[in-house]
Amino acid sequence: MTVSSDDLQVSITTKDACVDFPIFDAKSRSLKKTVMGVVGGNIDSGARVPIIEALRGITLQLEHGARVGLVGHNGAGKSTLLRLLAGIYEPTRGTAAIRGRVAPVFDLGVGMDPEISGLDNIMIRGLFLGMTRKQMEQRVDDIADFTELGDFLDMPLRTYSTGMRVRLALGVVTSIDPEILLLDEGIGAVDAAFLEKSRRRLSELVERSGLLVFASHSDEFLRELCDTAIWMEHGQIKQHGAIDDVLRSYKGHAG
């Protein structure tokens, strides 16, 4: 396996990457031994400060064009893995090298300010996703069209319903040109007609992006967007392969 020396090549390479969370306010007494449950990572209380080993021994090589689905139980480490791949968490042990512009879409609500107008929120969200002011100004009409919010865009965000907020956030997110796109599930709460429309936009976005990692519980959605998949369990990669194989063994295991 060779790492491309070409700097322009989009890729994510991790080697034996671990993510350990120190939990400063946990009473270490109540965590006397390492607890291993179905849900969550491993808790190691041997150290002075209890540590949650959220990810262990992650070795991955994702190149341009990769379309990877992430499956696993709640707390298996899907979201943490996405944050590792985004560069938000630098591995506590091991290495991670990320080449390319990362656009993480984990929580549609983050960075949204309820007191300012929808249009202002579009601008701020875009800037956070790495766009320039000019690029966002070019896209604002397209986003406004897509959201179907009309005059509401001039109203403060707090007057929006949950569904309207999701429309706005999805509109911005799907308008950008990411090199590495990291999607976390939970893009729900929209009506059926809008969902159909946003699906098309989402797939277009995925096609534009150089590299996709997508965490979801929906088989249908995963099969539509991804060709390979990673099965996470207890913070480790249990299986990494073609999407159908991984989904089959994951479902077989769960059932």
Binding site: L8, A86, G87, E90, A96, A97, I98, R99, G100, R101, V102, A103, G130, E179, I180
Partner: peptide, 17 residues
């Protein structure tokens, strides 16, 4: 033309202590 003037790239390019 990718610019390094973006968050994700540069922070990740040089990581560590």
């Amino acid at each position: 033309m990718r610019q390094v003037a973006w968050s994700g790239v540069a922070t990740a390019q040089r990581s560590g202590r």
